[in-house]
Every structure is written in structure tokens, then in C-alpha cells.
Simulated scan of single mutants.
Amino acid sequence: MLWVDKYRPKTLDKVLVHEDIAQNLKKLVTEQDCPHLLFYGPSGSGKKTLIMALLRQIFGPGADKVKVENKAWRVDAGSRAIDVELTTVSSTHHVELNPSDAGFQDRYVVQEIIKEMAKNRPIDVKGRKGFKVLVLNEVDKLSREAQHSLRRTMEKYSASCRLILCCNSSSKVSEAIRSRCLNMRINAPTEGEIMKVLEFIGKKESLQLPPGFADRIAHQSNRSLRRAILLFETCRVQQYPFTSNQAIPPMDWEEYVSEIASSIFKEQSPKRLFEVRGKLYELLVNCIPPEIILKRLLYELLKKLDSELKHEISHWAAYYEHRLRLGQKAIFHLEAFVAKFMSIYKGFLIETFG
């Protein structure tokens, strides 16, 4: 088992990061009532860890007995019936799914599937009136129609069902949904908090950490706790005992993006653009989010650019990131950004060197 899963806190009492939020959540449970919750914050900040610890706090060990299913539903979409297939993680007490995986059919997922789950008779918990919990991931990626349907579901089935919503940015969640939830902002952990977790894992694994080693990993993690733990384990696999000057390897996909950036600088042509497109596809197929690919590619390109071009390239990166969020096919916008960069960079080379 990876350390990121092995040392994930099982209860709210054992949470090492965001202890104040964990205590507030614990207070909610002891008051025997849990409102709809919206957890939002950057990737790797610990949202899912807090959610799972909260579920264990409410339902006990039963929340751990989960099964993963790839379920297909036939839902009524006005004049026709459509088939929607989604992966769900469920226990007796909760169901977790990602409605945005259904793409433009997400509103049918919200209208029919969630409605069906919410209608199930709640299970009594410790003698008091129970409720089921629906955990919905990436609600910021839901369409406006789906968010509108979700608002109605929250109101109609609130007696028997609680919703825990999880997303990176609350600004893309409608005001109507936010106002019906207790909003929990989960900040990215500080480097000091990340070091504390790394030292805890090192102690549990009986590892000797040289001075400054945890600090370097924390610095390279970009304040993502998940990333920091993965880097720490990678270092352990590659070389132990640790040395104070030991290299901390980048992620495989980051090296791949760096190679893509180098190939773009070497040649700006339709043939090279076609090759880059295939590599971008490979990253997307391996579940690297398109926004992360674009951000990393910009970072690698800016490292090798003259200062006079940096502003213009950053402007176009922001433009295509916006288009990326509005559109459906990520590859179109990533490829368009690369094509735009090639055009600007080639023009700059011609102008500079003739």
C-alpha cells in the first residue's frame, strides 16, 4: 500500500493538518446533526481525507466497507431514454460519485440517479433518525442545468439525505448551492505542516531523515500534501539511507511535459505540432488534468524564453485556459495554445536573426 493511503488519518482526532477544521467537524457530529457541506480548496490539500474521516466519525467502521461499481442507468431524457454509466464507491451509509464524468449528460445524472439514491429509506444510526450521505466530487465542473437540478434535490430530500460536495473552486458553484451548504475552505497546507507529516511518516517507517531533507521535499511539493508523500516514498525506493544532498526526482509526467517543451523549441512546424498533439493525448489518457498540463507546459516554456515574450505567452495561456474551462474537448485548446506559441516564437526568431 502506498504511504499516501497507509497513513491517511482514519478519524478526525488523528488529522495532522487542518486540525481546527477537524475539530469543528467533530462538533457538528456530536450535536447529532450534519448539514449539507461544501469542501473547496486546491488539489492535494486534504479535502477527501477530511470527508472520509467525517464519514467514519458519523457512521463508524461501516463507512470503510465500500464496494466500487461501474453502474449503468437508463434515464428518461424527455422524448427518449439514454444510458448513463458511472463509477460509484458505496457503503451501507454513503455513496460517492462524480456526476461530471457523464459530460453533457450530467443534468440527467443529477435529476434521476441522485434522486433515486436520495429517496432510499435512511438507515437508523445509534438509535436516532439516520440519513444517507451522497458525496459528489468535482461539482465545480457541473453544467448550470445540473447545478440547478442539484439545488432542487438538496431541498426535496434533505430529511433523508445529506450532501457533501467537493471541488477545487467554489466560484464555479452557483450561489444557490453555496447558500444551502456549510462552506469549508480547505487551504493548501504550509510547508511546515507538510514537514510535520513527513517526519511523522519517517518515524513510523523507522527512517533517519538528514537535516533539511523534509524541508526540500516540502518545498518541491508546491504545498500539495499528496505530492509530498509520493515524492518522499519515491526517494525511499530510489535510495536509502537518505543523504543530505540526495536529488528529489520530479514526477514522470512533469519530465514528459519538459520533453514536450524542448521539442517545441527545437522545431516549429505542422509536423512537430502533430507529434506534440500525440504526446498531449498520452498525458490526458493517463488522467493528468488538462489545466495542470497547460500550467506545467507554460512553466517549462517560460523558463527558456526571453523576457520580452513572457508577457505575451502568459496572456495566451490565460486565454486558452479560459477556453479550456468553457469547452468539452481539452485537446483542441491545448493544441491551439501550442500552435499559437509556435507562431509567436517563430516570428520572434525570424525578426531577431533574419
Results as ranks from 00 to 15, higher is better:
Ser170Met: 06
Glu155Thr: 04
Lys129Thr: 12
Asp83Lys: 05
Lys126His: 08
Val139Leu: 03
Thr88Cys: 03
Arg144Trp: 13
Lys129Glu: 15
Gly130Gln: 01
Lys132Ser: 12
Ser174Thr: 14
Ser160Phe: 12
Asn98Leu: 10
Gly130Asn: 00
Ser179Val: 06
Arg185Gly: 00
His94Lys: 02
Glu191Gly: 07
Val173Arg: 08
Val89Met: 10
Ser179Met: 06
Met117Gln: 14
Cys181Glu: 15
Arg80Leu: 09
Met184Pro: 01
Ser143Pro: 06
Glu175Met: 07
Ile194Asn: 02
Ile164Asp: 00
Asn183Asp: 08
Lys115Val: 02
Val110Trp: 03
Ser174Tyr: 10
Lys126Leu: 14
Arg185Ser: 09
Asn120Gln: 13
His93Gly: 12
Arg80Met: 09
Glu175Trp: 13
Leu136Tyr: 02
Gly192Trp: 12
His94Ile: 01
Leu165Arg: 12
Lys115Asp: 09
Arg107Trp: 13
Met154Thr: 04
Ile113Asp: 00
Asp140Phe: 06
Leu150Gln: 07
Arg178Asn: 03
Asp101Glu: 06
Ile82Glu: 09
Val125Leu: 04
Leu182Cys: 14
Lys126Phe: 15
Cys166Tyr: 01
Glu112Leu: 07
Ala81Cys: 07
Met117Gly: 04
Lys172Cys: 07
Gly103His: 09
Ile177Pro: 10
Ser160His: 15
Asp124Ala: 14
Ala102Pro: 01
Ser171Val: 10
Arg80Gln: 11
Gln147Met: 04
Leu150Glu: 01
Leu142Pro: 04
Thr88Ile: 08
Leu150Asn: 11
Ile123Thr: 11
Glu116Gln: 13
Glu138Ser: 09
Arg144Pro: 07
Ser169Cys: 11
Ala102Ser: 14
Ile164Gln: 03
Val110Asn: 08
Val84Leu: 03
Val139Ile: 08
Ala188Cys: 05
Glu96Gln: 07
Ser170Lys: 10
Gln105Trp: 15
Arg144Cys: 09
Asp83Trp: 02
Ile123Asp: 02
His93Thr: 05
Asp101Lys: 07
Leu163Cys: 06
Glu85Gly: 03
Asn98Lys: 10
Cys167Pro: 08
Lys115Phe: 05
Glu116Phe: 08
Lys172Asn: 14
Ala176Leu: 01
Ala176Arg: 03
Leu163Gly: 02
Gly130Met: 02
Val95Arg: 06
Arg80Pro: 03
Glu175Tyr: 08
Arg128Cys: 00
Cys167Arg: 06
Phe104Ala: 11
Leu86Ile: 15
Arg80Lys: 12
Pro189Leu: 00
Gly130Val: 02
Cys161Ser: 11
Glu175Val: 11
Arg121Met: 14
Val110Ile: 13
Lys115Pro: 03
Lys126Met: 12
Ser179Tyr: 13
